[in-house]
C-alpha cells in the first residue's frame, strides 16, 4: 500500500508545479462563476420568489461551490486511460502487479487533493467577496459535506474511467466523450440545480449517478438540505460508487481478455 501513497504524493507535487496554469484556471473559473451567478440571480429576480427551493444567496453559493468542484471532479473528462487503450500501451499497464484502477485512483487522489486546494478554494473566496456565501445551520453539515465531496470525486472518477475503458470496443472516442461530458454537465446539476428542472427531467436525472457528482455534495456542504437528507444522498453516492466500481472492474477484465485474444 505505501506505493499508492507515494504515487498520490508525487502526483500532488507534480500538479503543484503548474503555477501559471493554475492561476489561469482560477481566473477563468472565476469569470465563469460571475457569469453563472448573474444568470441565476437575474432569474430569481425576475420570478420574485424562490425557484426550486433556492433563495438568491443559496443560488450564488450553489454556483461558487460548483465552480470549486469543477476541477477536482474533472467535469470536462480525462483522456489518459482511453489514449493508452487506443495506442495499445494499456497492455504494459495491465502487466504490472498493481491493479490498473487502483493505480489511476491513487494518481486521482493526489491530483484531486491539489485541485481542491489550488482550484477549489479561490472561487469560494471570490464568492465571499462578491455575493457572500450561505452557511449551513447545523455543524454536522461540514463533515457530511466534506465526505460527500470525497465521494463525488470517487463517483466521477469511476464514471470517467468507464467512459475511457470503452475505448477497448469503440474505435472513435471523441464523439462519445463529448456526449458524456455534455450529459454529465446537465444531469449532474452543474449548469443549473436539478430541482429547477421540469419534473420529468428531474426524475430522469435522479435515476442516474450524475447528481451524486455535483448536486449532492453542494447541497450537503451548503446546508441547503438537512444533515438527515444529506445522509440519504451519501448513501446513494456509496451505492453508485459500488455499482460503477463493479462495472469498471468488469470492463478491465473483459478488456484484458480481448487483448489476450488479439495477442496483445
Amino acid at each position: 500500500m505505501p506505493a499508492y501513497g507515494t504515487l498520490a504524493a508525487a502526483t500532488f507535487r507534480q500538479y503543484s508545479t503548474y503555477r501559471v496554469a493554475t492561476a489561469a484556471g482560477v481566473f477563468t473559473n472565476s469569470v465563469f462563476g460571475l457569469i453563472r451567478v448573474s444568470i441565476l440571480l437575474a432569474a430569481l429576480d425576475a420570478s420574485g420568489q424562490e425557484i426550486g427551493g433556492y433563495t438568491a444567496l443559496q443560488a450564488a453559493t450553489y454556483v461558487w461551490l460548483g465552480q470549486a468542484l469543477l476541477a477536482p471532479i474533472e467535469a470536462f473528462g480525462t483522456r489518459t486511460i482511453g489514449e493508452r487503450v487506443r495506442t495499445g500501451e494499456i497492455a504494459v499497464d495491465l502487466l504490472r502487479p498493481a491493479p490498473l484502477l487502483a493505480v489511476h485512483l491513487a494518481q486521482k487522489v493526489g491530483r484531486a487533493g491539489f485541485l481542491l486546494l489550488g482550484r477549489g478554494l479561490p472561487p469560494l473566496l471570490v464568492g465571499v467577496l462578491v455575493t457572500g456565501l450561505a452557511l449551513p445551520e447545523s455543524p454536522w453539515s461540514y463533515p457530511l459535506g466534506i465526505l460527500s465531496v470525497a465521494l463525488a470525486i470517487l463517483v466521477s472518477f469511476l464514471a470517467d474511467a468507464i467512459v475511457n475503458l470503452s475505448a477497448f470496443w469503440l474505435v472513435e472516442m471523441r464523439g462519445f466523450q463529448t456526449l458524456y461530458m455534455v450529459v454529465m454537465n446537465l444531469l449532474s446539476g452543474f449548469l443549473i440545480p436539478i430541482t429547477w428542472f421540469p419534473s420529468w427531467l428531474e426524475s430522469l436525472a435522479r435515476i442516474t449517478p450524475f447528481p451524486s457528482m455535483v448536486q449532492t455534495p453542494i447541497d450537503a456542504l451548503s446546508g441547503r438540505i438537512t444533515p438527515a437528507e444529506a445522509l440519504v444522498g451519501i448513501g446513494l453516492q456509496i451505492l453508485w460508487a459500488g455499482i460503477l466500481a463493479l462495472v469498471a472492474q468488469a470492463m478491465v477484465r473483459a478488456g484484458t481478455r480481448s487483448l489476450e485474444v488479439q495477442g496483445g
Partner: peptide, 13 residues
C-alpha cells in the same frame, strides 16, 4: 505559454 485557460475566459466566456 501555460496560460491557455486564461484566454478561455474571453473566448468561451
Amino acid at each position: 505559454i501555460d496560460g491557455r485557460e486564461f484566454a478561455n475566459a474571453f473566448t468561451y466566456g
